[in-house]
Design a protein around this nucleic acid. Sequence first.
DNA 1: ACTTTAAGTCAGTGTTGTTGACATTCCAAG
DNA 2: CTTGGAATGTCAACAACACTGACTTAAAGT
Lengths: 172, 172
Amino acid sequence: MADGKAGGTKGGQALLFLTDEQLRKGIEAMFFAYRGFTADPDRILEKYGYGRAHHRAIHFISRAPGTNVNNLLGILGVTKQSLNRVLRALIEDGLVESRVGVQDKRERHLYLSDSGRALEAELSEAQRARMRVAYREAGHEAVAGFRRVLEAMMDPDQAAYFNAMATKEDKG
Amino acid sequence: MADGKAGGTKGGQALLFLTDEQLRKGIEAMFFAYRGFTADPDRILEKYGYGRAHHRAIHFISRAPGTNVNNLLGILGVTKQSLNRVLRALIEDGLVESRVGVQDKRERHLYLSDSGRALEAELSEAQRARMRVAYREAGHEAVAGFRRVLEAMMDPDQAAYFNAMATKEDKG
DNA sequence: ACTTTAAGTCAGTGTTGTTGACATTCCAAG
DNA sequence: CTTGGAATGTCAACAACACTGACTTAAAGT
């Protein structure tokens, strides 16, 4: 029956009876929530003629300034050619700076310019606002559970990236 | 400061201090988790030459057999032209049946065929399997919190759809 | 009869992903 | 030092899928 041991009895969960209906409900919740999650940034990006791909690039460059293209490829999980188109647009528009590496001149290190930081702030604030409201509505314990389930849903290597970026102040 | 009143003290949450870093972490968790969430179905769909759009159509037709096109448009949030392309392929391949309405002959009611149900089962089981593992790892209370945050993150009309479809056995 | 609604179609466009070919740089073996 | 392979990034062409806009067909509703 594959449910012999329902986890290590970590929290207070006894068995966890999960009907297909409950699981399906979780699947649909992810679908609808993700749409809400991207709705606000999408509206902002449209004003500037950008798409979600640009947002992702901006987000992770902001998160790890000076990162190189290869690194970003690993995080974003797209092909280098696909990322390049996005990056080229952002560089041409002056939102991102690409500096040739000092030690290894093959590498390009990526930074946000002032205007890049401005857009990042606008996007980020919209998304954080929604997240903040959702967190407040759901409550403190719900937030912890939310994070725990999401992390368990990631592929292992994605989870590794996720946790690698945690080592700042979060960590708890 | 905008944080004067931290919600209506609904559950047991006292204040909820949310740093930007914590919110950002939640944003990234959504990003990585959603990728994991879609990874398994994507692999299956590729075998049949379908994409995520086909999956979504199949899912909601399975969920509400006999639904009409307009209804599906509302749920999926895409244009009629976009859905039509997908639907046409599924009908031609014999996965979906389109029956003219009895009361209103303008409407087309959509049903999965046997082979449609088979693919739905394959996709659904892959996704449920991941969800099941994540739920087990995270624990019972985490699941409740997960669901609560996701629901609070939806746009109101999306949440309405979501809850309208809940009225079967879930409801708790 | 006239208007509205449901569904489907045709044409054009844009974003985002893909593969393939290519340039540059580094590094290590000869 | 030179040469060849590996790594990094760029350019070009193509496919999938979403969007807008204009239109057709059929069936209701008034």
